[in-house]
């Protein structure tokens, strides 16, 4: 296991070097906070922020992408090549989310070529959280502020320097490429990392997560959804900021017979999401739609993939305009589960 340190004054140089033959995505400041963007100038990279408003899922699953182009009745495949990409500074929850998305886009042997072309070329350097945010609850959903899942390299901010631990062959190759800028981590560094990890995990409070799937199934008809549905505005923000939400729409954009078929992020919170051509809609109320979002993550995904599709990043909590707090919802569902 390769363990290196990088003086923080050299981070820009490090990114410039690795970005020479890669697309570099990292958090940069914008007027709304920090956001993962393609970065040409590493001096703009901002590693101080905690969770960005939008997760970095768009690096591998863009909000909008062309599936193919067409002219009249002839469809043309688009080239499915992708450039080597470095995703730098994703938090461990976001890295873990990529591992969950991988399962959907390769589910039952059907590979999604648009997702995989990018994912396979993406090297993820995750940055451990020394001080988790107020809405964070990663440890309650099986994650960790210093988790390694989904990442190729795990980095720790040790104040004056970054500690970098290679987790995969791809990560090791990346660190070797920049070896002129780094030094071997000392025992002292490793101890400091251990201490930081222990302190970070200590700061997170455990919240109850409903894990009894049979009881969750029973909750389908519970009154709680009516009440939550009255609060939910159906704006879809939670799905857009969520690192594991992956529902998409496919639409055509055309002008005079020339156009493209594209896919865009979508949300189960929208009333038209399930509207049939006949006018029938299986989810006519916001209560049903809010229930779908929560149960998809905490019941249907555990049934299909063996784990909940929530990494505890807290973005849906901080960004909900109606103040819906998923932690409170989960707590209530857990107590429902105990009763039934």
């Amino acid at each position: 296991m390769l363990e290196m340190t990088l003086d923080k004054s050299k981070v820009q140089e490090f990114l410039r070097l690795l970005g020479e033959n890669r697309r570099l995505f990292a958090p940069v400041k914008d007027r709304m906070g920090t956001k993962f963007s393609e970065v040409a100038d590493p001096s703009l990279v901002c590693l101080d922020g905690l969770n960005t408003n939008l997760s970095p899922k768009e690096v591998v699953f863009p909000q909008w992408e062309t599936l193919y182009t067409f002219k009249e009745d002839h469809a043309n495949e688009v080239k499915l090549a992708a450039q080597e990409t470095l995703l730098f500074g994703a938090r461990p929850c976001d890295a873990r989310a990529l591992g969950l998305l991988d399962q959907v886009f390769t589910w039952e042997g059907i590979d999604d070529p648009y997702y995989l072309r990018r994912r396979e070329k993406t090297c993820v350097v995750a940055l451990a959280c020394n001080t988790p945010g107020e809405a964070c609850f990663c440890t309650s959903v099986g994650g960790s502020p210093v988790g390694e899942i989904g990442a190729d390299v795990l980095a720790f901010d040790l104040g004056e320097q970054l500690y970098l631990r290679a987790l995969t062959e791809r990560g090791e190759a990346l660190l070797k490429e920049a070896s002129t800028l780094t030094e071997k981590a000392t025992e002292e560094d490793k101890q400091a990392v251990q201490q930081a990890a222990a302190e970070a995990e200590k700061q997170l409070q455990a919240i109850p997560i409903p894990k009894d799937l049979a009881a969750l199934k029973e909750s389908f008809d519970a009154e709680i959804w009516e009440e939550l549905g009255l609060k939910c505005l159906g704006c879809g923000t939670c799905a857009y900021v969520c690192p594991t939400c992956h529902c998409f729409d496919i639409t055509d954009e055309t002008k005079k017979g020339v156009g493209r078929r594209v896919r865009n992020w979508d949300s189960c919170a929208f009333s038209l999401f399930t509207l049939h051509g006949s006018g029938h809609n299986p989810r006519t109320t916001q209560a049903a739609r809010y229930r779908q979002r929560v149960l998809h993550k905490f019941l249907y995904c555990p049934e299909n993939f063996g784990e909940a599709f929530c990494v505890g990043c807290g973005r849906c909590i901080t960004n909900c305009p109606a103040g819906l707090d998923l932690r409170a919802v989960l707590e209530r569902l857990s107590s429902l589960a105990k009763v039934t």
Binding site: W107, I110, C247, F248, D249, D266, P282
Partner: peptide, 24 residues
């Protein structure tokens, strides 16, 4: 069954009834 669908291959998350996807 009928259900509104997009991808038809169990990715786009539109046609599920509980954990079952009508498309696949």
């Amino acid at each position: 069954l009928e259900m509104r669908m997009k991808c038809g291959i169990g990715k786009c998350g539109r046609c599920n009834i509980g954990s079952k996807y009508v498309c696949k």
